[in-house]
Design a protein around this nucleic acid. Structure first.
Lengths: 100, 100
DNA sequence: TCTATAACTCTAGTATAGGAGACTTTTATG
DNA sequence: CATAAAAGTCTCCTATACTAGAGTTATAGA
């Protein structure tokens, strides 16, 4: 049988496009070993919406995004752009790469 | 004449609802002294969309959100939930409260 | 290579976002 | 208090998100 294959969390936590967010969410789901269909049903969104989020489609609503992120264990932070580089440095060591 | 009144940046940078994001974006715009209408036109979204974002409406798309955030100088970060409290502590001192 | 199954794609219907413009409300300031 | 201007609201229209279900493709493991 085909198993759920873990993907790495984005090395740089700075969120500059929906693609980065999709990668983070996919990483959280796959490392938890949950299938797309099961995750969608548990969280309460359609399979298609979850697929679109993981693919980084820009049209998905922030409501669905936060719903899925919280459901799969992904946290977001917001800061003024003037502090971006400081924040990036302070967070960069948090991402632990745990590929298979 | 009525001037653009600065609002504070959210004290806690953890993004758990669209309302927090709206507050951050409104803070960035008002502290830059830019009117809703001018900001919307410059960034390239409708006035209504910017109003909805600042009001924290959950339906706005992630594409528009990132477009406006980048246009107004607001940065987002994404990390695994297991690191949330560490990240919150590391970022909490970054938010400088500069109310009028 | 065979096969079970995870991932992905497609379609159709409904709901809602997004934009443009006009209008109303609120509030600094004279 | 008066008023100019920023903020917020409303309506109509088009585009697109969202869902459900069925079908197709890709791949891990026997």
């Amino acid at each position: 049988m085909k198993r759920v294959v873990p993907t790495p969390f984005p090395a740089d936590p700075y969120l500059d496009s929906p693609v980065v967010l999709g990668a983070a969410i996919r990483s959280a789901r796959t490392q938890a070993g949950i299938r797309l269909e099961d995750a969608a049903m548990t969280i309460g969104v359609s399979l298609q919406t979850l697929v679109d989020i993981e693919a980084g489609k820009p049209g998905v609503s922030i409501g669905k995004i936060l719903q899925v992120a919280q459901g799969l264990g992904v946290s977001l932070f917001v800061i003024p752009q003037s502090q971006r580089e400081i924040a990036r440095r302070r967070l960069s060591d948090l991402i632990v790469d745990n590929r298979p």
